[in-house]
Design a protein around this nucleic acid. Structure first.
Length: 532
RNA sequence: GCUCCUGUAGCUCAAUGGUUAGAGCAGGGCACUCAUAAUGCCUUGGUUGUCGGUUCGAGUCCGGCCGGGAGCACCA
């Protein structure tokens, strides 16, 4: 089976990352880890988009060279991924020479194939903002607002990609490939956008007088390549496309890696860039239908019902949350409280609840009480096979049902349902303790065998939980296993899960609270700590 | 303006056209003591936005209205 190739959007390096960036990368990371755990080779690519007008402007304002400016912002991103445990195989930088060479090679090929042409168009241009304006920039009265300053009509030459030649193919492709976009309902919007269009091509250049911070067009030095074309190509340039021709080394073998199994993106960049520009670009480059990648479109985290935006001042900083609730605590919340593809509401209160009640009270406390009793009554030694009863059978069935249902849920991006499956074990095990009351069994010598069985069932159940939740909480699940005195065997796969991970006579470790309770001072929930 | 999605418990969401619309969390009560003031059991809570239609039967299908959201190709 070919490697599972997963990418994320590459983030625009004009500001520091917020919770939305973090969500997307964690989502992709969880899927990558799940696939690995499922025994599949994985190539996980993320990165940053460092080109573009905004970057050039911001760098100027900061009095810095663009490269220095983007390097600094990029460091914020990579530091956050390090902190959150986002473990990628490669990190795309659009200013990196190997990437630039591939972009130029593609442009050359398309140019030679007659897919690009130069044309002149008139438009409204804001002198102050140094950009062309579209009808969307018009106010209610149909005029351009004061924020644009002086607006003049200007004619400008640019290079265009003959996107319109591929639209009919794209419509057919989308209709005949319901898997192309997940969730499927978003394909409607794309088809709709295509229907309403009138053969407009894609502008892929900016004159050098206006924008220098970009990749020069190899066939016309007066222009640089503009944004989407350059950015989208990262998905193939970093996968080894045209590596030989461009003299790029150290990259994967493109033929075995492509197509991407998942381009994980936000709904804001589905149409037009990923659903229209990207497949038509690939098609123009000669990619077949079988080599069109799949799009996984996630929703947004709103804040109290409204969009997160700098102007509203409600931007959530993932760094602070990870400090308060641990990186894995944040990952857990981000994966559990949203259904992939849909929006969710970010809530300090729910995050606090997820951490304290579910992770602390549910999972952490289960581990702690189980280990405490095992150590107190049996010096942490697991003894198997001396006793069995219906209550034990029932717990075993829950575990088996959970790890049976789990892979399907995860495979179909229903991460929150995968977590739910694992959580059935946590809930059942806590109930199991109430039913069996090992602390009472310990007082009765005649119940010794039953106590052994109970303690064994708890430890074994926790070992399973530590595997199932590993993609979501890699650090904490590692700690669970440490406390259990158990490590994942080499090349352990999900399909290796079975009742009986812990051997007879296994020595458990000592328990320490995994998720120490987070106390909040005010009634504003976690806000007090999360946003000082 | 055009197109599409959506409206179910305080919150997040389930319910192939088929019993009395369910779960988790939050709220309330009780129990327990191994544990991180944890856990378990019980429980409150609904005119499924609204008006009509189709049907033996509608949360589900159709239409109107009201509310929420999204998309509509040089905008990253």
């Amino acid at each position: 089976m070919k490697p599972y190739y997963i990418t994320t959007a590459i983030d625009y390096t004009n500001a520091a990352p917020h919770i939305g960036h973090a969500y997307e990368k964690v989502l992709a990371d969880v899927m990558a880890r799940f696939q690995r755990l499922n025994g599949r080779e994985v190539y996980f690519l993320t990165g940053v988009d460092q080109h573009g007008q905004k970057v050039q402007k911001k760098a100027q304002e900061a009095g810095k060279e663009p490269q220095q400016f983007v390097d600094e912002i990029t460091a914020h991103f990579t530091a956050l991924w390090e902190k959150l445990g986002v473990k990628y195989d490669s990190f795309a930088l659009t200013t990196a020479p190997p990437h630039k060479r591939v972009v130029q090679a593609i442009l050359t090929r398309l140019h030679e194939a007659g897919q690009l042409y130069k044309a002149s168009r008139r438009g409204h241009y804001s002198v102050r903002q140094e950009q062309f304006l579209t009808d969307k920039e018009r106010g209610e009265d149909g005029k351009f607002g004061d924020e644009w300053g002086e607006v003049i009509e200007l004619e400008e030459s640019n290079w265009y990609f003959k996107l319109s030649e591929h639209v009919d193919w794209l419509k057919g492709y989308i209709r005949s490939h319901p898997d192309f976009i997940f969730p499927a309902h978003r394909a409607h919007d794309v088809i709709n956008a295509l229907e309403g269009s009138g053969g407009i091509d894609l502008c892929i250049s900016r004159p050098k007088e206006r924008l220098t911070w970009g990749i020069p067009l190899p066939f016309d030095p007066d222009f640089v390549n503009y944004v989407w074309f350059d950015a989208l190509v990262n998905y193939i340039s970093y996968a080894g496309y045209l590596a030989d021709e461009c003299g790029n080394t150290g990259l994967p073998d493109f033929k075995t890696l492509w197509p991407a199994n998942a381009h994980v993106i936000g709904k804001d960049i589905l149409s037009p860039p990923h659903a229209i520009y990207w497949p038509t670009m690939l098609h123009a480059m000669g990619f077949s239908d079988a080599d069109i990648p799949r799009l996984v479109v996630h929703g947004w985290w709103n804040v109290k019902g409204s969009k997160m935006s700098k102007s509203l001042g409600n931007v959530i900083d993932p760094n602070v949350l990870a400090d308060t609730f641990t990186p894995d605590g944040l990952r857990f919340y981000l994966m559990k409280d949203i259904a992939t593809g849909y929006d969710a509401d970010f809530s300090d209160e729910r995050l606090l609840m997820a951490y304290n009640k579910e992770l602390g009270g549910g999972l952490g406390n289960l581990l702690n009480r189980s280990l405490n009793m095992a150590n107190r009554y049996r010096n942490g030694v697991v003894k198997i096979g001396g006793h069995d009863d219906d209550i034990c059978v029932s717990l075993r069935e829950t575990v088996i049902e959970a790890y049976t249902a789990y892979p399907e849920k995860m495979e179909s991006w229903a991460i929150h349902e995968g977590i739910e499956e694992a959580w059935k074990i946590v809930t059942a095990a806590n109930g199991f303790i109430e039913q069996t009351q090992p602390f009472k069994l310990a007082k009765d010598e005649s119940q010794a065998a039953r106590l052994d069985a109970v303690l064994h069932h708890l430890a074994e159940s926790l070992a399973h939980v530590s595997v199932l939740l590993d993609p979501v909480m890699p650090v904490m699940c590692g700690r669970i296993r440490e406390q259990l005195g158990w490590a994942l065997p080499d090349s352990f796969k999900l399909t290796d899960l079975r009742w009986g991970l812990l051997p007879d006579g296994h020595q458990l470790g000592l328990g320490t609270p995994l998720f120490p309770r987070v106390e909040v001072a005010s009634e504003e929930g976690a806000g007090a700590k999360a946003r000082p």
